[in-house]
Simulated scan of single mutants.
Amino acid sequence: MPLTLSDFNTADAGVVRPILTACLDVPRWVDAILDHRPYTSREALEAAADLPLSSDEIRRAMAAHPRIGEQPAGGWARSEQSGVDNPDAFAAANAEYEAKFGHVYLVCATGRSGDELLGMLRERLGNDPATELAVAGRELLKIAELRLAKAVTA
């Protein structure tokens, strides 16, 4: 159940921490958001959430994400990937991507079709590893922002 911004600001950290961790599994990010409470607006909360991530933090957070095209067991990932209607096409592309970069293909899938996501994956195969990790980090923050908006309402 989502929290209002007021409840988010006043709730015990033990209540809020798992909610934030579900948005983005990066302890420093979670701590930074908790430490800056109370927030005067949703915009202030969103600004605090836009925290650059280190390479290690990106890799850690990616480990908590299912592959695009696989059927997630539940939670936010299931609805976020609802546009993926071609899971078989992703199997080979995911394998090629993971062989090149050593991690799952991570993209903010909300509102995108399976064909669009697959095209983006193929395009990103042209990136060098450092560039791709930075792209994945930006996508993680987009996902976290969407999840935070679902978790904390106005």
Score class of each variant (00 low, 15 high):
residue 55 S to E: 12
residue 55 S to G: 06
residue 55 S to F: 02
residue 58 I to G: 06
residue 58 I to Q: 03
residue 61 A to T: 03
residue 61 A to V: 01
residue 62 M to Y: 09
residue 63 A to N: 08
residue 63 A to D: 10
residue 64 A to R: 10
residue 64 A to Q: 07
residue 64 A to Y: 04
residue 64 A to D: 08
residue 65 H to W: 04
residue 65 H to Y: 04
residue 65 H to E: 04
residue 66 P to Q: 02
residue 66 P to C: 04
residue 67 R to Q: 11
residue 67 R to E: 06
residue 67 R to Y: 02
residue 67 R to P: 10
residue 67 R to F: 11
residue 69 G to M: 00
residue 69 G to I: 06
residue 70 E to H: 09
residue 71 Q to H: 11
residue 71 Q to Y: 13
residue 72 P to R: 02
residue 73 A to Q: 14
residue 73 A to D: 13
residue 73 A to L: 13
residue 75 G to I: 10
residue 76 W to R: 12
residue 76 W to V: 02
residue 77 A to V: 08
residue 78 R to C: 06
residue 79 S to F: 12
residue 79 S to C: 02
residue 80 E to G: 10
residue 80 E to I: 09
residue 80 E to V: 09
residue 80 E to K: 02
residue 81 Q to F: 15
residue 82 S to V: 13
residue 82 S to R: 14
residue 82 S to Q: 07
residue 83 G to V: 03
residue 83 G to A: 11
residue 83 G to Q: 14
residue 83 G to H: 11
residue 83 G to I: 04
residue 84 V to I: 05
residue 84 V to S: 03
residue 84 V to M: 00
residue 85 D to W: 11
residue 85 D to H: 11
residue 86 N to C: 12
residue 86 N to E: 13
residue 86 N to I: 13
residue 87 P to R: 02
residue 88 D to F: 06
residue 88 D to C: 06
residue 88 D to A: 12
residue 89 A to L: 00
residue 89 A to S: 10
residue 89 A to M: 05
residue 90 F to V: 09
residue 90 F to P: 09
residue 90 F to M: 13
residue 90 F to I: 15
residue 90 F to T: 11
residue 90 F to D: 03
residue 91 A to C: 10
residue 92 A to H: 13
residue 92 A to S: 06
residue 92 A to K: 07
residue 92 A to T: 13
residue 92 A to P: 03
residue 93 A to E: 14
residue 94 N to A: 05
residue 94 N to G: 00
residue 95 A to K: 11
residue 98 E to K: 07
residue 98 E to R: 13
residue 99 A to Q: 15
residue 99 A to S: 15
residue 99 A to T: 15
residue 99 A to L: 07
residue 99 A to G: 12
residue 99 A to F: 15
residue 100 K to M: 12
residue 101 F to K: 08
residue 102 G to Q: 03
residue 102 G to E: 01
residue 104 V to G: 13
residue 104 V to A: 14
residue 105 Y to W: 13
residue 105 Y to E: 07
residue 106 L to W: 06
residue 107 V to R: 00
residue 107 V to L: 07
residue 108 C to Y: 15
residue 108 C to K: 02
residue 108 C to I: 07
residue 108 C to L: 03
residue 108 C to P: 04
residue 109 A to T: 03
residue 109 A to E: 05
residue 110 T to I: 08
residue 110 T to M: 14
residue 110 T to G: 09
residue 111 G to F: 04
residue 112 R to H: 15
residue 113 S to L: 02
residue 114 G to L: 05
residue 114 G to Q: 05
residue 115 D to C: 02
residue 116 E to G: 00
residue 117 L to P: 08
residue 117 L to Q: 01
residue 117 L to T: 10
residue 117 L to S: 01
residue 117 L to C: 06
residue 117 L to N: 00
residue 117 L to F: 09
residue 117 L to K: 03
residue 118 L to S: 06
residue 118 L to E: 12
residue 119 G to W: 01
residue 119 G to C: 01
residue 120 M to D: 09
residue 120 M to K: 09
residue 121 L to P: 01
residue 121 L to V: 01
residue 122 R to G: 00
residue 122 R to W: 03
residue 123 E to K: 10
residue 123 E to F: 02
residue 124 R to C: 02
residue 126 G to F: 11
residue 127 N to S: 06
